[in-house]
Simulated assay, not measured.
Amino acid sequence: MIRPYTVLDTDERVMTMEPVTFGLIAIGVAGGSLVGVSIMEGYGIKINQTAINLALEVTKYGGMLYLLKHLWAIFI
């Protein structure tokens, strides 16, 4: 649970990321990296498409596993 921080908080705070927040961040990072890649291609830098596809697939499957972990905790 995320609570606002005040100076009076003396207990240890636990920060966890919700699945929706994780998804938004992952999509933003992937989109930002693709924009960066397209800018580099515009400047004539050779880009390895296989490596990009591999990185995006790993990110996608990692996000799915993260979501399944949270769903598993809800139902079990």
Rank of each mutant, 00 (worst) to 15 (best):
A73W: 09
K69W: 13
M17Y: 06
G32N: 02
R13D: 15
M1S: 13
G31L: 02
G23A: 12
G42Q: 00
V58C: 07
L24I: 11
I52C: 00
P4T: 01
A26V: 11
L71G: 08
Y61A: 06
A30Y: 06
I76S: 14
A73I: 12
I39Y: 03
E12P: 06
Y61E: 13
T21D: 12
G63P: 07
I45M: 09
K46E: 12
M15R: 12
Y43V: 14
F22H: 00
R3T: 15
G63S: 04
D11I: 10
A51P: 03
K69L: 14
T21N: 02
I47F: 00
G44T: 00
N53C: 07
V20Y: 00
V14G: 09
G63M: 07
L34Q: 04
V58N: 05
G28Q: 07
M64K: 13
M15D: 14
I25H: 03
V14Q: 06
E18V: 04
V29Y: 01
F75I: 15
M64W: 15
L24R: 15
G63C: 05
L56P: 00
L24H: 11
V14T: 09
T59G: 10
G44M: 00
H70A: 08
V58L: 13
H70T: 13
V7C: 12
E18P: 08
A51E: 10
V14W: 12
Y5F: 14
I47P: 03
Y61K: 12
L71Y: 07
F22L: 06
I74T: 11
P19I: 04
T6C: 05
S38D: 01
M1E: 13
N48H: 03
D9A: 09
A51F: 06
K69D: 14
I25T: 12
M40P: 02
A30V: 05
H70I: 10
Q49T: 11
A73D: 12
I47Y: 01
A51L: 09
I45C: 07
T50L: 14
I39F: 04
Y66V: 05
E18D: 13
V58G: 05
F22V: 06
Y66I: 00
A55V: 05
S33N: 12
G44P: 07
A30K: 00
I25W: 09
F75H: 11
I76P: 01
G44R: 03
T21K: 04
I2K: 10
Q49R: 10
M17K: 08
I27T: 10
T6M: 00
I76M: 14
D9G: 10
Y66P: 01
A73G: 08
T16P: 00
P4A: 01
P19Q: 03
W72K: 13
E41L: 06
M1Q: 09
I52Y: 03
T21P: 02
I47K: 02
G28F: 02
M64P: 03
I45H: 07
I2S: 09
Q49N: 11
N48T: 00
M15H: 12
V20S: 03
I27K: 05
I74P: 02
V35P: 05
A55F: 10
V20G: 02
Y43E: 11
F75W: 15
E57V: 15
F22N: 11
L71F: 07
G28Y: 02
L68I: 04
V20E: 04
S38A: 14
